[in-house]
């Protein structure tokens, strides 16, 4: 299996005022196509920072980030935006849905950036909502959905444009155990049956069990030896 994500010697530092803090120290990571990786580690260890680099939301201070065959550390922010639209679906802890849009309009958002016709968009939105099991809630606003349902809508939105990579930052962090398990199961199905490569940040060891691999980050460095073997 070829690597869909490959980071080599990546450094990320933040400058706040006069102080520069290095958050990621010379990280090198490869993630294979079709993998489901759980990214774990204590708070402040740099998980979100790493995920943002993989998802093309941010650029490294140095080092190479290659995703889906593209050196995304070399793209301009405009190119990066277009690249994200094609290749990455994002799922956040707090769902981040547009409160004034219905579920289907939320899911449609990424498709507005494509050249699909209105009928095509409707079809794809319907398909994505069906995959997450929420087809009958298409007309509901986020406020009318439970946390688990809202997260399913967010996953549908991440899926709808058929991205290369699904990137999730603590997708179950705000959900109770059984709802979290449903969401994780859904992610597993997306990985196994739909072949989506998934990188998921989580604090929860139980959540990490759903993944095929685990990566542990501590103080901006990978901790070896704790990695579960490929399923």
């Amino acid at each position: 299996m070829s690597a869909i994500v490959s980071l080599s010697n990546v450094v990320k530092s933040y400058t706040r005022g006069k102080q520069t803090v290095e958050v990621l120290h010379h990280l090198s990571i490869e993630i294979a196509q079709g993998d489901f990786v759980a990214l774990m580690g204590p708070s402040g260890s740099g998980k979100t920072t790493l995920l943002n680099l993989i998802g093309g939301l941010d650029r490294p201070s140095s080092g190479e980030v290659k995703v889906a065959g593209e050196r995304i550390d070399q793209l301009s922010s405009g190119q990066l935006a277009k690249w994200r639209a094609r290749h990455v679906g994002f799922v956040f802890q707090f769902y981040n849905l547009m409160p004034m849009l219905s579920a289907e309009r939320n899911v449609e958002l990424p498709l507005l950036l494509t050249s699909l016709s209105s009928a095509q968009r409707k079809k794809n939105v319907q398909a994505a909502l069906t995959v997450v099991g929420l087809a009958e809630r298409a007309k509901h606003k986020p406020a009318e959905l439970s946390g688990g349902q809202a997260q399913r809508v967010a996953i549908a939105r991440a899926l709808v444009a058929d991205p290369t990579l699904l990137v999730c930052d603590e997708p179950t962090g705000d959900l109770d155990r059984s709802t979290a398990d449903e969401i994780l199961h859904l992610l597993q199905v997306l990985n196994k049956d739909h072949g989506k490569t998934i990188v998921m940040v989580t604090h929860d060891p139980k959540a990490a069990e759903y993944a095929s691999h685990q990566l542990h980050l501590d103080k901006g460095q990978l901790v070896e030896g704790d990695v579960k073997a490929a399923a």
Partner: peptide, 16 residues
């Protein structure tokens, strides 16, 4: 602001 950030995450450009 957070909603606009989400639009950008999805791939809306700055100009968009």
């Amino acid at each position: 602001i957070p909603e606009l950030a989400v639009l950008k995450t999805i791939g809306f450009t700055d100009a968009g």
